[in-house]
């Protein structure tokens, strides 16, 4: 049987900015690989849908009955469940992306030597970075879709703007995945992942996911406003409650910067780590 592997396409103008030979334009084959691999781990995959739903049930139903209503983004009172649901949506986008781009990538990098095998083929570091970030996104997008459906079922989606919550979740996931992957490239051992927990957990708890900014003293409010998850929650809460305003473009810009910095750093570091 004769087989001629087609030569990778000639690099486009944008790609020429990157180190020569680092992009073969085949990042999608990594998606295929991840999808094939996840066939054996489908149970874990499915369980990803369940986690935020449990949180919504517990916090919305249980705590909600203690709290009653809260002022929404535009000042109008909303139920506690409606308040935390967009927060959970943003947090699950973050958690999924961070998990995929840190633990999973580190394992493949250090123990599986998976990327080493890929680099023996025409694939380059850019294919790997884009492919892995893309998978984290795809998965995050599916989870977000599932969660939005549950929110709809609970009657927590009251505005057509909520349709935009899905792409917004993808932007958030992309940003966290890109930065997560860049950070992973600097990690030396599993111990370093405590730092990830140390950053992600307080962010999950304090970025207005569960209670509004007004509970903090002013100086702490400023700190919280600097956190990426805060911007994600603002974005989601505005969209799902329909309180959309121009300031949300600022939130988006925050993520655009994260994506840019993350992708560039991740690619360059993979280049250094793998092609020595």
């Amino acid at each position: 049987m004769t087989a001629v592997a087609p030569p990778p396409p000639a690099p486009s103008r944008i790609v020429r900015l990157l180190p020569a030979g680092s992009y073969a334009g085949r990042a999608h084959t990594l998606l295929l690989r991840s999808a094939t691999a996840s066939r054996t781990t489908w149970l874990a995959f499915v369980s990803g849908f369940a986690e935020p739903v449990f949180y919504l049930l517990a916090m919305g139903q249980g705590l909600g009955s203690l709290v009653g209503t809260l002022p929404g983004p535009d000042g109008a009172p909303i139920s506690y469940a409606a308040f935390i649901a967009p927060g959970l949506l943003a947090a699950s986008a973050m958690n999924g992306a961070v998990f995929d781009s840190t633990y999973n990538v580190f394992f493949k990098l250090k123990y599986g030597r998976l990327y080493e095998a890929m680099l023996a083929t025409p694939l380059g570091p850019v294919d790997i970075a884009l492919g892995e970030i893309g998978w984290a996104l795809l998965r995050g997008g599916l989870y977000a879709l599932g969660f939005l459906a549950v929110m709809g079922g609970f009657g927590l989606l009251v505005s057509p703007w909520a349709l935009l919550a899905l792409p917004a979740a993808l932007v958030v996931a992309f940003a966290f995945a890109a930065v997560g992957m860049a950070a992973t490239s600097y990690m030396r051992s599993w111990q370093d992942f405590d730092l990830v927990t140390l950053l992600v957990l307080p962010m999950f708890l304090f970025s207005t996911t569960f209670f509004p900014l007004s509970v903090y003293p002013r100086w702490l409010q400023v700190v919280v406003e600097c956190l990426p998850l805060y911007h994600a929650v603002e974005l989601m809460r505005g969209l799902t409650t329909g309180a959309v305003h121009l300031g949300m473009l600022g939130n988006l810009a925050y993520f655009a910067v994260m994506i840019g910095v993350g992708v560039v750093v991740a690619t360059r570091r993979l280049d250094v780590l793998l092609l020595k």
Binding site: T40, T41, A44, S47, A50, E51, F54, Y55, L63, L66
Partner: peptide
Amino acid sequence: GSAFTALFRFVVVPMTLFSGTFF
């Protein structure tokens, strides 16, 4: 593999959330 993650999310998370810890 998936077994533990699934156990964690399907069993441990709900048992944690619905066990009178937060309310």
